[in-house]
Amino acid sequence: MSDIFVEKFRGLVPLYLGEPWQEADGIDQADLDSIFAELRIAVPRALQEFFNTLGNCEELMEAYYYFWDPEELEVEDGYLLFLEDEDESYTWGMRADQADVPDPIVWRRNNRTGEWVNEEGTFSEFVFDMLDWVFNDDEGDDD
């Protein structure tokens, strides 16, 4: 099985942290397989490769919003949850029945109302856009 997203995810470390990607930034695939088997959940390829590449990189995993550790993943309301904001007002997930889709669409839940909204982008698009927003947010604020 070839890696689809690994190189792009690896590129986030030098892009935003100014240092080369290291193997220690990720979580070993065998460990991930064991965790997902224990949790009895199916995890889409993009999310697996994200953890495999960046799962131990706190600077990116906790950049403004908080990606859940693999052990914390859960399925709720038919969605595989993977991220929340610091106030726990919103949680992001992907439809659990889409686990066989390599890069599924991301949805956001308002935790107060329980309403889910389509983010209109795949997991990989969401990650790249979110980190770009987080790390480049202060550009132009001096106006």
Rank of each mutant, 00 (worst) to 15 (best):
L12F: 06
L12I: 10
Y66R: 12
V117L: 11
F135M: 02
I41Y: 04
L32I: 10
E19W: 01
L17A: 02
P20V: 07
Y79H: 13
G93F: 08
E62R: 11
A24N: 09
N56M: 07
V101K: 02
F126Y: 14
V101T: 12
W107T: 07
F135G: 02
Y79G: 03
N52A: 15
F82G: 04
G26R: 00
E84W: 08
D31I: 13
T122G: 10
V6N: 08
R95H: 11
D87C: 07
R40Q: 14
P14R: 01
W107C: 08
S34Q: 15
E49Y: 05
N136F: 11
D97H: 06
A99H: 10
N52V: 01
P102E: 14
L81G: 00
A37W: 00
P44T: 10
G26L: 03
D100E: 14
E119I: 05
R108K: 15
V106L: 06
I35V: 15
A24D: 13
D69L: 11
E71A: 11
Y16H: 11
R108N: 11
Y90R: 07
E71F: 01
V106Q: 05
G11V: 04
I27W: 01
D25I: 03
R45T: 15
G55H: 03
D97Q: 09
L54P: 04
E72M: 06
E88F: 13
V43W: 05
D77T: 02
Y16Q: 02
V43F: 08
E76P: 00
V127R: 00
V117Q: 12
A42K: 11
G18H: 08
D142Y: 07
A42H: 09
F135A: 03
E38S: 14
E62M: 10
A99M: 05
I4F: 10
Q48P: 00
D85A: 03
Y90K: 05
R108D: 04
V6Q: 12
R109P: 02
L32G: 07
N52I: 00
